[in-house]
Simulated scan of single mutants.
Amino acid sequence: MSHTVRKLFFNFEKEEQWLNNMAAKGLALTEYSLARYVFEDSAKGEYIYRIELLEDGIKGAKSVEYLQFMEEAGVERVPMNKGQVSYNKWVIFRRRASEGPFIIYSDTDSKIMHYRRIHRLWISLALMELIIGFLNVGLVAMDYISIVSNINLVMGLMLIILGAAFLLFSLPVRKKINKLQSDKLIRE
């Protein structure tokens, strides 16, 4: 039986934990898109899930090679909903729990690189939203477009708030990078 759950995450680790909790309850993820997950009944704890942000989009040369490597290692990529864009960089992997532990990043350097990709994503989104937001507010201040200045002001303020939220989402990732780097220095 198919179950659809609508839920939005801004932290991939919490999303990964939630997916593994769903698997422990006997629900296997079969497809996903933004804030939409489709599950089917399965044996409890049949799969272990991991989420990764690829360097390239799914169809990029490096990503295709990496995805083939993961498939050869017995790891499945959960398909995205057919309506999703093909340049998405986020992927959800799963592997049968009976095959043992499933860890994508076993060394500190690769973990740091993964968190840096995520951090760059949040910072890029934040900068884009802040720039566009301040431009909209600036148009209102210069009163170039008096008829739609209220719309520009509201949209600009909303984009600035969204940009600030993206900056906030980047802070825990930055802290993880700093912690991993300091742990690495201690071990060396």
Rank of each mutant, 00 (worst) to 15 (best):
A73S: 02
M155F: 04
D56C: 06
M142N: 13
L53R: 14
V173F: 06
E65Y: 13
M113R: 15
I177A: 07
S110I: 10
P172M: 05
L185K: 15
N88T: 11
D107C: 02
N178W: 11
Q181G: 07
M158A: 10
N81C: 06
A97T: 04
D56Y: 04
L130D: 04
V91Q: 04
S182D: 15
E55D: 12
I177C: 02
A165L: 14
W122H: 04
V140T: 15
G57D: 08
V91R: 06
L127A: 08
E129H: 07
L127C: 14
E71V: 01
I160P: 04
D109C: 05
P172C: 03
I48N: 02
F166P: 04
E40K: 15
R94S: 08
H114R: 09
Y47A: 02
S63L: 12
N81E: 14
N152A: 06
L180K: 03
A165I: 14
G60H: 10
E71R: 10
S63R: 12
E99P: 05
R95N: 01
S106N: 11
F134C: 07
L54R: 08
I92A: 01
I161F: 13
L125S: 03
K62S: 14
I161P: 01
Y49L: 01
L167A: 01
G45L: 00
Y49R: 00
R95S: 00
M113T: 15
L127P: 01
G100T: 13
E129L: 11
I58V: 14
I51T: 11
I145V: 00
E65P: 09
N88E: 13
Y115H: 10
A61C: 00
G156E: 04
E72M: 12
L121F: 13
N152M: 11
I151V: 14
Q181R: 15
K184H: 13
A165F: 14
Y47P: 02
Y66T: 12
D107Y: 07
E71T: 11
G74M: 06
M155K: 02
R117Q: 09
R120F: 08
N81F: 10
N81H: 15
L167M: 10
F69H: 13
R95H: 01
L139W: 11
S170Y: 05
L180I: 01
I58A: 13
I118S: 01
I92R: 03
M70I: 03
S149K: 15
S146H: 02
R187Y: 08
K179R: 10
F169K: 08
G163D: 09
L167C: 09
M128T: 08
F102N: 09
M142Y: 13
V78S: 07
V154A: 09
H114S: 14
I104G: 04
G138T: 08
Q84R: 06
E46K: 15
I186W: 08
M113Y: 12
M70P: 00
L127R: 09
I151M: 10
L162I: 05
K179A: 06
I123S: 07
I160E: 05
F166E: 10
V91D: 05
P79K: 06
I177L: 02
K176M: 03
K184F: 06
L67T: 01
Y49W: 00
G57W: 02
Q68V: 01
E65T: 15
L157W: 03
E55G: 00
L130N: 00
M70F: 02
I92Y: 03
N150F: 13
L130F: 07
P79L: 06
V64Y: 08
V75K: 01
D41G: 08
N178C: 11
L53A: 12
G74D: 04
I151A: 12
L135I: 14
L53D: 03
K59E: 15
